[in-house]
Amino acid sequence: MKQKDFNQKFVGLVRTPNSVAQVELIDLIIDGPKLSGARALEVYQEDYSSRLTEALKNTYRAINNLIGDEDFLSLSLDYIKIVPSYSSDLDDYGNLFSKFLTTHTLSDDYLFLSELADFEWNHRLVFHLEQEFGLDSLALISLIKDEDLKVQLVDSARVLNYHYLISDLYALKDSNSQEEHEFDFQIPQSLLMIKNDLVVKTHVLSKNQWEIMNYLLGSNSLTDLFLNVPASVTPEEIQSLFQILGSDRLLKRII
């Protein structure tokens, strides 16, 4: 067998064990004095699963801690079976985990899994981004009168909207997983995730603040926003939101 064909078959076998390919490959390798050919192939299969599981564990620490090692391993193995790694960097593995979890049976027991995975993946992305600086508070105030001023978030920030208290669940990532965490997580939560120097921070947004952000990021000008503020929005909500946006320099002009 040519090396090219061996490489193809070997990768296929490591990913999806099957006896036909195994027999074919074993025939091409030497039974070592310490390890048989069959066992050697198994070592590579085990290695594959454990490397990818470890990568998922590193990114999805909160999920791992909340559901425990056993369930996390079974979840990882299910994911690894259907999603290969395309990246040269092992740490990139797991970008489809949130989507995968929407239909996994374990999500029946842990309703928040997919949303928590989405949060953790975004956390990872923002962590690796350079902090981008948008308009500071003074610039923002001076530009508010500009009727055409439209803004967008800097690249190192995200607005996230969930059905569950995701930032509270994420905060349990380093807690003792044996402890019972009794709290009602079935409360919708909107978050503003930002890069602040080297760390990732999240601000919890009220429903009104989330709507304001959505309106702004939907290519509406600041002038439009102030003319169309819903009656339920309090001045404090607007003030605290713009304080964050200005002091952390989270908005940039759309040119």
Binding site: Q3, F6, N7, Q8, F10, V11, V14, R15, Y44, D47, Y48, R51, L52, A55, P84, S85, Y86, S87, S88, L90
Partner: peptide, 14 residues
Amino acid sequence: GLKNNNLHNLLPVA
């Protein structure tokens, strides 16, 4: 590995 499936392992050749 292969382009569509990186095994993230260092695999020997003959």
